[in-house]
């Protein structure tokens, strides 16, 4: 403990020194300037150093990438993937025209096949982050259909099908040269690193600091590639779940009141996490213990 205190004092001294240098030097770089690409490089390098045995593409497999025993279990389960029923249901729904004769394919580039890796994207028309799930519902509404609930059910099935047609395509998230896009990225980044809730966790506490470690029965998934497998079938849930379902349940684990699905902060968070994962291949739909 005493050496921690000394370290804190030493780093205070360094900070004071740095401040002095900054004042003397005049043109010190603003410390908080957003540089998403530099963030991404540092993020990926840090996980690479932490898990040197894990090939980069394998971060698409969440906890299985970093735990050999779990991986064995997983390979057994994958003999009969529990998401198969959802894939079938999603494919059928995707291919069934709406009442007005149009279909999901009309709302997406390349008719919605092999596009998962481009989501979420920054929509310069609305000035907000558009997720795959949100775009599916906007497509429905534009064609006179009711929006789907976001966490479970048909939304999970349709996104499962769309992910499956995109397997192995690397995340390719872009941050356009638009201050609103930078702001959305920065908001997601802040959300990810901010402690909230009674247990005093941030998302990073578990998925950066403790990534790969055991929290009771769970191996904590590393933050890089953490959305590549969505939607997932979780044995713990006994059903499929979307990104919103996972965000909601992690917020609750923090004893922090979850945001409504597709809340701006959750979309910005998805934008940040997906951008950090650029290059990691889509592996969804996934299965988890």
């Amino acid at each position: 403990m005493p050496n921690r205190r000394i370290r804190a004092r030493a780093s205070l001294r360094v900070a004071v020194l740095a401040a002095a240098v900054a004042v003397l030097g005049g043109a010190a770089p603003a410390p908080d300037k957003t540089d998403p690409l530099a963030d991404q490089k540092a993020f990926q390098a840090s996980f690479g150093e932490r898990f040197p045995q894990v090939p980069f593409a394998d971060f698409a497999n969440g906890p299985y990438a970093v735990s050999a025993p779990m991986r064995k279990q997983w390979e057994d389960i994958m003999q009969f993937p529990p998401y198969d029923f959802a894939l079938d249901e999603g494919k059928t729904a995707f291919e069934t025209p709406f009442a007005n004769g149009k279909s999901y394919a009309d709302c997406f580039a390349n008719k919605g096949i092999g596009v998962r890796q481009d989501f979420p994207y920054f929509d310069t028309k609305t000035g907000e982050v558009a997720t795959l799930d949100g775009t599916i519902n906007r497509c429905r509404e534009a064609n006179g259909e009711k929006p789907l609930p976001y966490q479970v059910g048909l939304m999970a099935s349709i996104t499962a099908y769309m992910a499956e047609t995109s397997r192995d395509k690397p995340f390719d998230i872009k941050i356009p040269d638009d201050p609103r896009a930078r702001a959305a990225y920065e908001d997601g980044k802040e959300y990810f690193y901010t402690r909230r809730g009674q247990l005093n966790f941030s998302c990073a506490s578990c998925h950066v600091g403790a990534a790969g470690q055991r929290l009771r029965g769970d191996i904590l998934a590393p933050a890089i590639g953490i959305l590549a497998a969505f939607p997932i079938y979780r044995s713990d849930w006994g059903s499929m779940g979307t990104i919103d379902r996972r965000f909601t349940s992690c917020s609750a684990q923090m004893r922090s009141e979850p945001l409504p699905p597709q809340d701006k902060s959750y979309r910005d968070l998805e934008y940040f996490l997906s951008y950090m994962s650029n290059g990691v291949p889509i592996s969804g739909p996934g299965t988890r213990p």
Binding site: D32, D39, A42, F43, K189, R195, R196, S202, V208
Partner: peptide, 16 residues
Amino acid sequence: EQSNEQKTAWRDAVIR
């Protein structure tokens, strides 16, 4: 109080 502290403190957690 937690939120107010985190307004700046979160930056110390960022991977650089």
